[in-house]
Design a binder for these strands. Structure first.
Lengths: 158, 158
DNA sequence: ACACAATAGTTAAGTTGCTGTACTATTCGG
DNA sequence: CCGAATAGTACAGCAACTTAACTATTGTGT
């Protein structure tokens, strides 16, 4: 006989496998145009700036949970490559505001398309399930998120 | 009104958030004993060898999907740190077989305990759901895993 | 039987993305 | 108006990976 606890554990393992696979997918380089690819970290930064233009370097840092040093370096790289533009703020001479260049917007859209394919596949697969079944997994995911948040904040408290 | 498709998409977003959080948790260093920590990559290599002693360097490489060079470097590091032992194979003078040292087994167990804490928290949280709800989630995760597998193998075919 | 290809592993140099520390340059507040 | 806080950069270093070139075995075809 299979106990409930065993079922729960095997379900969690399945979820972790899915999470791992997704992490691998996220790491794939994103093709922008013929012969041009950007790394995942670059794509995510471009995505973040594209969705909220006018961000500062520090905003990028807090958004991704990395140090401002890391954000500064990433931004500098994307500026050098021509995807991002750094304008000095209107009211402020010590801050910069970040914007996408034309090339940056092209990369942004390429990234959307790239992920759109995945999303369509997933939606398609989930359509076979009933509304209540899908709702159940939503609740489950909330619970998992809560446990993981505990774990992550635990680390910060050290 | 909320359509089914909207629910599906918001569910997928929740899944992606969980996947991201899990990836962050996986990156936390694992405490082995007072003042000794190992990185996640090290912990996973130790875990893999512990679960299947006698592995070769190349087996480690294929297990993790990295180059044999990367595996060789990781193994060399763990040997240097005293967690792994490299014995020349019985029938073969060009292969090595990998085993855990006492110290390696201690790290293996520390890693298990480390994960056990999370698992207990999750099981606790999931106990509120009914058996059939949990079973549904399992099926759903299988479906998601299948979509992701397609995507990953697509990449390899390039 | 022997040359040659395949296999197992190592080494070296370079890359990405991060951290920590130290630094400059602004801006704010008492 | 001086000192503290804030925004950002520079530099060194690290972990984990890659590619390419290498050694050293082992297996195979003729």
């Amino acid at each position: 006989m299979e106990t409930k606890e065993e079922l729960i554990i095997s379900t969690i393992r399945a979820l972790l496998r899915v999470a791992k696979k997704y992490a691998r997918i996220e790491q794939l380089p994103v093709p922008v145009e013929k012969g041009v690819e950007i790394t995942t970290a670059e794509a995510h930064t471009i995505q973040a700036v594209g969705e909220d233009e006018g961000m500062r370097v520090l905003d990028v840092a807090t958004f991704f949970g990395v140090t401002k040093s890391a954000a500064s370096q990433m931004v500098a790289r994307l500026v050098r490559k021509g995807f991002l533009e750094k304008r000095t703020s209107d009211h402020n001479n010590k801050e910069f505001q970040l914007f996408l260049t034309q090339s940056g917007w092209r990369a942004f859209q390429a990234h959307e398309r790239f992920h759109g394919k995945d999303l369509a596949g997933l939606v398609n697969r989930l359509s076979a399930f009933s509304l209540s079944q899908i709702a159940t997994i939503s609740v489950l995911l909330e619970a998992l998120g809560a446990v993981m948040d505990e774990r992550l904040s635990e680390k910060e408290r050290e």
